[in-house]
């Protein structure tokens, strides 16, 4: 069963054709890493998948349910997108925690007020997730009182508390000091071991190689190369990816 299915996705900003006929299917339990140069459209792809941007063309479905499709040559979205929001979670590069709310409130509010779940139950689950992340003593803290790595782990918990089928990450460690990336990557790795379905945009090549079932290399709005990480990194086919990795290793 595929959790996410995107077919022939296209998206432009004015004259800038950012996504050109991209297709991406993610199976349950699969971990997919997306790499590629700046401006290649990686974020736009995730933002289209999470309804933060509107598609120009293509098909988008979760768990076999169409959220967007083509009709008479035009994109058409499902009338009610609300049910789809429980299918996915998104972790942002800049965390985007709500600064005026405690860690616990950040986590439990959406499950309670959007999903209408029992507050006691949600709180217990939230505390369990915080414990798992080593943050149980931070429940009553405000985001500004936490380090970047802690804030990012809280935002992962916030996404997990919605019980999504798939979790998207847009460069989850890029805003962090190097010494803090490890703690966040460790958490994502742990989720991968628990068979959480994930799509991760990252610049951490070693991490992508170690954690993913599939690596996708994007450039210029298309998927240039994809496959098993050992295959893609060990035996790179395309010149574009070769030069990308070379430039990358130089830094």
């Amino acid at each position: 069963m595929n959790v996410l299915k995107m077919e022939h996705i296209s998206k432009s900003f004015g004259d800038n054709h950012v996504l050109k006929d991209i297709s991406l299917t993610v199976d349950k339990g699969e971990v997919v890493s997306v790499i590629g140069p700046s401006g290649s459209g990686k974020s736009t792809l995730l933002r289209c998948a999470t309804f933060l941007e509107t598609l120009d063309g293509g098909t988008l479905s979760y768990l076999g349910e169409n959220a967007a499709w083509m009709e008479d040559g035009k994109i058409k979205y499902a009338k009610n997108l609300k049910p789809f929001y429980k299918d996915f979670g998104l972790v942002f590069q800049s965390f985007n925690l709500f600064p005026h709310r405690t860690v616990l409130k950040n986590i439990i509010d959406a499950p309670v007020s959007v999903q209408k779940r029992d507050k006691k139950e949600v709180t217990a689950e939230a505390m369990e997730l915080l414990r798992k992340m080593g943050l149980e003593d931070k429940a009553d803290f405000y985001p500004y009182q936490l380090s970047g790595g802690q804030q990012q782990r809280v935002s992962i918990v916030r996404a997990l508390a919605m019980k999504p089928e798939i979790l998207f990450f847009d460069e989850p460690t890029s805003a962090l000091d190097p010494e803090l990336t490890g703690e966040v990557l460790k958490v994502i790795k742990q989720l991968a071991e628990e068979k959480m379905t994930m799509v991760i945009i990252t610049h951490e090549m070693g991490f992508a190689r170690a954690v993913s079932d599939r690596v996708i290399f994007m450039d210029g709005g298309v998927i240039v190369e994809q496959g098993d990480p050992e295959e893609v990194f060990g035996n790179t086919q395309s010149e574009r990816m070769k030069s990308f990795l070379q430039n990358y290793n130089k830094d």
Binding site: K82, S94, N96, V114, M162
Partner: peptide, 17 residues
């Protein structure tokens, strides 16, 4: 910041919420 709206939207909050 725009990120506050985006975080809320992705969590399924309505415009009013």
């Amino acid at each position: 910041p725009q990120g506050q709206y985006e975080a809320a939207q992705v969590l399924g909050y309505s415009k009013l919420q």
